[in-house]
C-alpha cells in the first residue's frame, strides 16, 4: 500500500512520556495534554500553501435534491478544521464526501473535485475502499463492533490486509494514541460494549488510527458524550494533530473555538422555486479570525446566537 508523502512522520504516539511505548514514537514524543494545548498556539499561515486535501466547486445531490452548492475548501496538514452551521446546511454531507461515504447513500451524486494529495478521489478508477484507508472516519454515536476491544482495533488492519509485524504492538499503540490504553489494558479480550460512551468513542478513534490514515473525519464526535468525556476527546484531538489532519463537524461553537485551527461556516439557502434548502459555504477563515472578526453578517448572527 503506497501512502502519502508525510508517511515518514507518521506514527502512533504514546499519551505520556516515560512509558514503554517509546518504540512506537518514530515521529517524536508527545508531552502532557496541557503542553499539547499550548503547542497549538502556533503560528498558522493565513493562506494554506500546501493543503493535504481540498474541494473545488463541490456540488452534492441526493437524487433531485441539491444538498450542497459550490464548496471550495482546503484542509491544512496537521490542522483541525471545524465545519459549523445550522442543521441542514450540508456540513455533514460535505464531510462524508471527503472519504466517499456518500457512495453508500442510494441516489447520492457528487460533482466537482475532492483532491487528496493532488489526486481527485472522484476520478475514474479510484477505489473508494482505498480512499477510506487514507481518510478515516469517526461517527456521531460511538459504533464499536460487537467484538472484543482488541478485535475492534485490529479490525481495520486485518480487513485492509495491512502488513503488520506485531498486531499486539499495533493495538497497544493505537489504544495509547487514543488515550485509552491505561483504562482497557487489562480487559482487551472483553466486549467493547462494556465500555462507557466516552471510552467507546475513544475506542472508535483508536480503531481509526490503527489503519494509519492521514486524515480523520469526525462527525459530531462528542454529541453523544457528557462534558467530561467531551473534554477528553477534545484533548485527544489536539494531541492527534501531531500525526493527523482532522476535519470535524460540530454543532457546538465553543468546541470549534476550543479545538480548531480553521473554521468553515455553512448555511442553508432555500431554493426560490422548490423550497429545498441547499447548503453553501459562507465564510472560511482561521478560527480566531472567524470568531473575533467575522466578515459576513450571517456568520456574525450565527456565532453571536442570533439564529441557528
Amino acid at each position: 500500500m503506497v501512502k502519502g508523502t508525510n508517511m515518514s512522520t507518521h506514527s502512533v504516539t504514546a499519551s505520556s512520556p516515560g512509558t514503554e511505548a517509546n518504540r512506537h514514537t518514530a515521529g517524536g514524543s508527545v508531552g502532557s495534554l496541557s503542553d499539547v494545548a499550548q503547542e497549538i498556539e502556533r503560528h498558522l499561515p493565513d493562506k494554506l500553501m500546501d493543503p493535504i486535501m481540498e474541494t473545488s466547486l463541490l456540488n452534492i445531490y441526493y437524487g433531485d435534491f441539491h444538498a450542497v452548492h459550490d464548496v471550495n475548501l482546503a484542509f491544512g496538514r496537521n490542522e483541525i478544521t471545524a465545519l459549523i452551521g445550522p442543521s441542514g446546511c450540508g456540513k455533514s454531507t460535505v464531510l462524508r464526501s471527503l472519504n466517499r461515504m456518500n457512495d453508500l447513500v442510494p441516489g447520492a451524486r457528487v460533482e466537482g473535485a475532492v483532491n487528496y494529495q493532488g489526486q481527485n478521489i472522484y476520478a475514474r478508477g479510484v477505489d473508494p475502499i482505498a480512499v477510506r484507508t487514507h481518510v478515516g472516519m469517526v461517527f456521531q454515536k460511538p459504533n464499536p463492533f460487537p467484538k472484543s476491544i482488541y478485535d475492534n482495533v485490529a479490525y481495520g488492519p486485518r480487513v485492509t490486509g495491512m502488513k503488520v509485524d506485531d498486531m499486539d504492538d499495533l493495538v497497544e499503540g493505537a489504544l495509547r494514541g487514543a488515550a485509552l490504553w491505561d483504562e482497557v489494558k487489562d480487559k482487551l479480550k472483553q466486549s467493547a460494549y462494556g465500555l462507557s460512551g466516552g471510552q467507546q468513542q475513544r475506542l472508535c478513534i483508536a480503531r481509526t488510527i490503527a489503519t494509519k490514515p492521514n486524515v480523520i473525519l469526525m462527525d459530531e464526535p462528542c454529541s453523544a458524550l457528557d462534558p467530561i468525556a467531551t473534554a477528553r476527546v477534545e484533548d485527544l484531538m489536539l494531541q492527534l494533530t501531531q500525526d493527523y489532519t482532522i476535519v470535524i463537524v460540530t454543532h457546538n461553537m465553543q468546541q470549534a473555538a476550543r479545538v480548531s485551527d480553521r473554521t468553515a461556516f455553512f448555511t442553508a439557502r432555500p431554493d426560490e422555486t422548490t423550497g429545498n434548502r441547499t447548503g453553501l459555504l459562507v465564510e472560511y477563515n482561521l478560527t480566531k479570525q472567524l470568531f473575533s472578526q467575522p466578515s459576513d453578517q450571517r456568520t456574525e448572527d450565527y456565532i453571536s446566537g442570533r439564529f441557528g
Binding site: R132, Y155, T211
Partner: peptide
C-alpha cells in the same frame, strides 16, 4: 458505516 469507513469491503 463504521466498517466501510475502516476500508472494509
Amino acid at each position: 458505516q463504521g466498517s466501510f469507513a475502516m476500508g472494509a469491503n
